[in-house]
């Protein structure tokens, strides 16, 4: 598959207009800190929710960075951080076998059961 993108968009300046050479260099990172995923509980009673990631040298710093970066506007009352490499994610390739089988189990839902009006609030 090939195409050329010619149009320039705000936030996307094409490479042929940059006026610099674009010879790719192999990049080796020197002192990059590991990546951490951040989860915030926005208020008591709610689950922690994934909000993004950040870099930090260790867990203590990751926690503080999460506080400084992701809760500047009182977004949270509790934080979780976990180094990204420890997250195991399901593969989209498995989606059919993982999630499709739940599709036809309508008896798991309350609306499946017809009850007389007198008790229908059950």
């Amino acid at each position: 598959m090939s195409f050329t993108q010619q149009k320039y968009f705000y936030g996307d300046i094409p490479e042929d207009h940059t006026g610099k050479d674009n010879t790719s260099t192999t990049f080796e990172t020197k002192n990059e800190w590991p990546l951490w995923e951040v989860f915030v509980r926005s208020k008591q009673g709610l689950d922690h929710k994934h909000v993004g990631s950040l870099h930090a040298a260790d867990a203590a710093m990751a926690m503080e960075n999460a506080r400084d970066v992701y809760t500047r506007r009182q977004e949270g009352v509790s934080l979780w951080v976990v180094e990204s490499k420890y997250i195991h994610a399901s593969s989209p390739d498995d989606a059919d076998s993982f999630y499709e089988p739940a599709n036809d189990k309508i008896y798991r839902y309350p609306v499946f059961y017809q009850l007389p009006d007198e008790v229908n609030h059950m």
């Binding site: 800190w33 950040l54 870099h55 930090a56 503080e64 960075n65 400084d68 970066v69 500047r72």
Partner: peptide, 11 residues
């Protein structure tokens, strides 16, 4: 020295 700490010292 890094974006996260830039934000921290500014806080």
């Amino acid at each position: 020295p890094i974006l996260e700490q830039d934000i921290a010292i500014t806080n």
